[in-house]
Amino acid sequence: MIAVLMAGIAVAFFALPFFGLLWRVPWSEAWSLLTEPESLEALRLSVYCSLWATALAVVFGTPLAWVLARYGFPGRRIVRALCLLSLVLPPVVGGVALFAAFGRRGLLGDPLFDWFGVRLPFSTAGVVLAQTFVGMPFFVLTVEAALRGLDRRTEDAARTLGASPWYAFRRVTLPAIKPALFAGAVLAWARAFGEFGATITFAGNFPGRTRTLPLAVYLALESNPGQALVLSVFMIAISFAVIVGLRDRWLGGSGDGDPT
């Protein structure tokens, strides 16, 4: 009985801020606020950057998860902790750290600019970098867990039947971890889509170049609160759709059955 009551309080705790937002949104002008050039520009940039960040997370995260799951090497725990650090790091700190590495006077930023003329801070590429930095751990964690949970004997069987390691990975392992790949990619995307702290610190805030939706919301809060509310609800709607879709399709929605 008490448990149900406390669960109810917890649900209200999560739901109330959302309903509060819905209640304050100026619905009569919602559509025009949402389709204002600045809103659309921020939306376009957010979609563009978060998809790039997700692609990078998948391309580099899959081998990383594979290595972490399959190879025992000295210092693996430290390597894993390092790769997952940005999960628990305050994003602003992440942004500062990115400066130290890729900033103009950073470890790698200096040679990058001298040799290639590449300057990451205040650029769209900087946004992608910041989003990948915070989003990739979600992908790695999910895929690594799936790889660990896999019955390796199926792979071994494929190998004994003459399959090359790459063939076995492509035809046996990959299909088996497909749900985890999807789930990880969606989680990484959602995190990248909502990224704020590292972006505003490292990539700055310029319309069309680095001002993603969360930054636009933050800025509009001062100049145009109605727009901030509409954009917030819009972002929540997207996140909500993703979570619901994710749960039903890939997180074993059938597995947990009905609550009694």
Partner: peptide
């Protein structure tokens, strides 16, 4: 079989 392992991360 991988559904449950992917949730174990969370």
């Amino acid at each position: 079989m991988t559904g449950e392992s992917s949730t174990s991360a969370v």
